[in-house]
Nucleic acid binder design. Sequence first.
RNA 1: CGGGGUGUAGCUCAGCUUGGUAGAGCGCUUGCCUUGGGAGCAAGAAGUCGUCGGUUCAAUUCCGGCCACCCCGACCA
Length: 526
Amino acid sequence: MAEKITPRLENYPKWYLNVIQEAGLADNSDVRGCMVIKPNGYAIWENMQRGLDRMFKETGHVNAYFPLFIPMSYLAKEEEMAEGFAKECAVVTHYRLKAEKGQPLKVDPTAELEEPLIVRPTSETIIWKSYKSWIQSYRDLPLLINQWANVVRWEMRTRLFLRTAEFLWQEGHTAHATAAEAEAETMQMVKVYAKFAEEFMAVPVLVGPKTEGQKFPGALYTLCIEAMMQDGKALQAGTSHFLGQNFAKAFDVMFTTPDNKKEYAWATSWGVSTRLIGGLIMTHSDDQGLVVPPRLAATHVAICPLGKTEADRAPALAAAQKLAAELRALPREEFFGYEPIGVQIDNDLKTSPGYRFAKHEVRGVPIRVEVGPKDMEKEIPTCIVARRDYLYQVELEPELNHQKKNEVPLVTSAESIVRALKDMQRVLFERAKKYRDARTVTATTLEEFAALFPVKGGDKDEEETELNKLQFVYAHWDGTRETEDMVQKKYKATIRCLPFDGPMEPGTCPFTGQPSARMVLFARAY
RNA sequence: CGGGGUGUAGCUCAGCUUGGUAGAGCGCUUGCCUUGGGAGCAAGAAGUCGUCGGUUCAAUUCCGGCCACCCCGACCA
C-alpha cells in the first residue's frame, strides 16, 4: 500500500494535514474555517483540560461559565479591545427565521434585535460586567475565575487547530486589590502554562513578555510561552495578560479599601486553546504519523494478540487480557500520579498484523505490545514491547542505541511498559529541547540577520518545505515599533518575546544602529 | 476586496479540446485465501457530473449568470 503521509521534508504543511487526517484528530467542516474535532483529537484535549484544570485549582482558581453572546456595546467600552477585535467578530442580528411551505428558509426581517450581539472572541467585557456586581469590598478580592469555553474569531485564513474560526479554550479572568498582586498572578499563570507545556506536552518553551506591538488589546503587557515547531517556526502557545485597571474602569468596577477609600480593581486574563494540539503535533510527530507524549495519550498501550485463527490466538489473547488487567490495576502513582493507564486490546481477526501495527502507530499510541503463538510456546512466555518514539528515529539518534522492539518476559511486561512510558515522556521533551537549542542562533549584524530569514522570489511552497532552515534568532532591537514593523515586513520575522532567560547584555540594534537594551527573540511564526 | 484556479462515486482525480446520458485508484460490502510490518484474487454496491438558464435532435462536455471552495495578495495575538 502506498505511503499515506507526505514526508516532512517534502512538504511540511501537507504532512501536518495528513497526520491530522490519518490519526483521526479532526476534519474540516462545511462551515468555513471551523473544524470537527474527532474522538481521537478530543481525547487529547480532554487530557489537556484535566492537567490544566488541576493546576488552576491548585493555584486557587474556580470554574464558572459566562454567556456566548455579548452585547455589542460591551465591546465598545474598552477602546483597544474594540479596535483589536472589531474586524473578526461574528454578529447576531436576528432571533428568528421564517419557514413557509415551499419557500426557502430565510431570516425573518421583523425579528431584528434592537442591539446586535457579538459571539465572544474573548470574554473580558461580559465577565467584567458581572464583576461589577460581585466586587464591592477588598474582602471580595482576589476573584480567581476560569472558564472552559468556545470562542469565535473570524479569521481570514485558517488551519486546523492552529487557527480556526471557532476554537475551544480556557480563559482565566482575575480581579485583585493591588497592581502587585495582579502582576504576580500574571507571572504565576504564564509559569503554569510553561510547566504544563514542558511536563505534560513535553514541549520546551521560552517565557517572556511580548513587545508593545504584539500585546493583547486592552493589556498593559502580555507574557507568553513560545515553542519551536519542527520547521523552525515559532508557535505562541499561551498568553497571560496584565490588564491593569483598564477593564475595571471600562465597567466601573470599584471596591472599598480597608481604609474606606474607593479604588478600581486590577485585572489579569490568561488562556490556552486547542491550538496546543497543533503545537503538540508539530513538535513530536514523524513521517509515520502522530506521536503523543504518554501524559496526554488517551490510550497508552495497544495490545495486539497474534495468530491466524481464534484457536491459534486463544493463549495469546488470554495473556493479553491478563496484561491489560495488570496494567489497569496499577496504582495511579505508579503511572503519573492521577489518570489511570489506558489499555486497548486489538483482537481484530480480519486485519493483518502489519495493518494493526501501522494503525496504532499512525494514531500515536505510545506503546504497542505484540503477543502471539511463538511467544506462548516458550518455556518463559514473552511479548514484544514496541515504543512509538523509537520508530524511525533510530537513524537520527544512533548514539541512543534505540531498539525498535524489545522482547520481554510476559510476567515482567507491565513494569517494562510503565518504565518505557515514563522514559518516553522524558525522551520526547529532551529531543524537542535539543532540536530547538540546536536551531537557536545569534545575529549581530544586519547581514547575518538577513541570511537567516531569506525571502524567496514568490515560490511559497519551496519556502515552506525547507525544514531545518528556519531558526530562532536572538538579535538586538532598538525597542521601537517602527523597527519591529520594518523587520516583519522585510523579513517576515516577528519578535516572539523577550525571554526571561535570554541574553540580557545591552548592545546595538543592527537595523538602525541605535542602542539596544537587550537581545530579543526573532522568528517566523504561525 | 483584488489576481488566479477548481467544482464529476465516501476520498483523490481522469473524461470535456472534437457534444451521443460516465471511468480509474483508494475506500466500502461479500466470498476465497492470508496472520510477527499497511497482503492477494474475484464479485458487488455506489454519481440528479455545484446550481440556474441558453444553444442543440441531443449538454458532464459549448456559452452566460449565480453559488461554494482552494491558492496568491491584503488581513490576522
